[in-house]
């Protein structure tokens, strides 16, 4: 029994090493803190915002108010508080970013491992398809998909997730091939281990840290992609998101009106959250990639 206990403790100890490694990257930690705050806001804030405050038909405040005492970030074209809109939009942006990233990284990991581990015709075709989609402009495909599918959150997630997986697939495939070329995989085969054993015990555990890094970076690009689709008017019309706010600002002429308080906050929110995900991703990458 002591054997088990020491093994468990030594593993926990090693886990601490990874956490410590991450904490050494100040930018990454800052990013993580920003994300925690953003997530908290996204979850809690809607509970406190009265539905009337965001309904165009029921708002009574004057439109295009500059920031001041009443609305400390001013109001939009319909008299809604920009501050409340930004807070409300956090949920949509983060939700789409996370789910689309999970979808995309999930597909990418599956395709990558399958085409890396199994040789033969099927893997060749998969690789060819991956390369094809890798080259195509993902945003153009996402636009096409969201144009033909009914508007909604699901469409956006699908459009982004289905078009952004190839880079993950390439990365996972390369990593799978690297791992499979290692002598310890040959040793596992010589011991009698089959596909399941090799993938489950050797390939997957080695690929997962990189997949995590990739997922973090994928969230960043998914949020940018969501905002772009929303800006082009392809978002879910029933929901407020940061991209949709910029779309509205453009539509109602915030630029000629010099309504900087309407334009600046949603864009800054995107930049800060995307940058935070990027910084966390890079810090994770530095932790999981062994130094030479």
């Amino acid at each position: 029994m002591t054997g088990f206990r020491t093994r468990w403790f030594s593993r926990v100890g090693r886990g601490d090493g990874a956490v410590g490694g991450f904490l050494a990257h100040r930018a990454g930690v800052a990013g993580a803190v920003v994300l925690a705050v953003a997530a908290l806001v996204a979850v809690i804030a809607p509970l406190f915002i009265p539905a009337d405050a965001l309904d165009v038909t029921r708002v009574s405040d004057a439109p295009w108010q500059a920031p001041g005492l009443g609305h400390w970030l001013g109001t939009d074209h319909a008299g809604r508080s920009v501050a409340l809109l930004v807070v409300q939009g956090a949920g949509t942006s983060l939700f789409v970013g996370l789910t689309a990233a999970v979808l995309s990284v999930g597909i990418g990991t599956l395709v990558g491992i399958v085409s890396g581990h199994f040789g033969g015709l099927a893997a060749g075709v998969l690789l060819r398809v991956t390369d094809f989609f890798l080259v195509l402009p993902a945003l153009v495909l996402a636009i096409a998909l969201s144009t033909v599918l009914p508007r909604g959150l699901g469409t956006i997630v699908l459009a982004i997730g289905l078009t952004s997986w190839p880079s993950t697939a390439r990365m996972v495939r390369a990593q799978t091939l690297t791992i499979e070329a290692r002598p310890f995989v040959e040793r596992a085969r010589a011991l009698g281990g089959g596909h399941g054993h090799v993938i489950g015990r050797h390939v997957l555990p080695s690929v997962l840290p990189l997949v995590l890094v990739n997922a973090t970076l994928a969230v960043a690009s998914a949020i940018v992609a969501e905002s772009t689709l929303a800006f082009l008017g392809l978002g879910d019309p029933t929901r407020i998101s940061w991209g949709a706010m910029v779309h509205q600002a453009q539509l109602h002429g915030a630029v000629p009106q010099r309504a900087w308080w309407y334009l600046l906050p949603p864009g800054l929110a995107i930049v800060v959250v995307v940058l935070a995900f990027t910084l966390v991703g890079r810090a994770l990458e530095a932790v999981v990639t062994p130094k030479r």
Binding site: T228, A249, Q250, V255, L263, V271
Partner: peptide, 18 residues
């Protein structure tokens, strides 16, 4: 570069315009 990478193109364009 990291910050610019995070900036949505359309928003940057509108900001520059303004």
């Amino acid at each position: 570069s990291l910050t610019l990478w995070a900036v949505p193109t359309f928003w940057l364009g509108m900001l520059l315009m303004m």
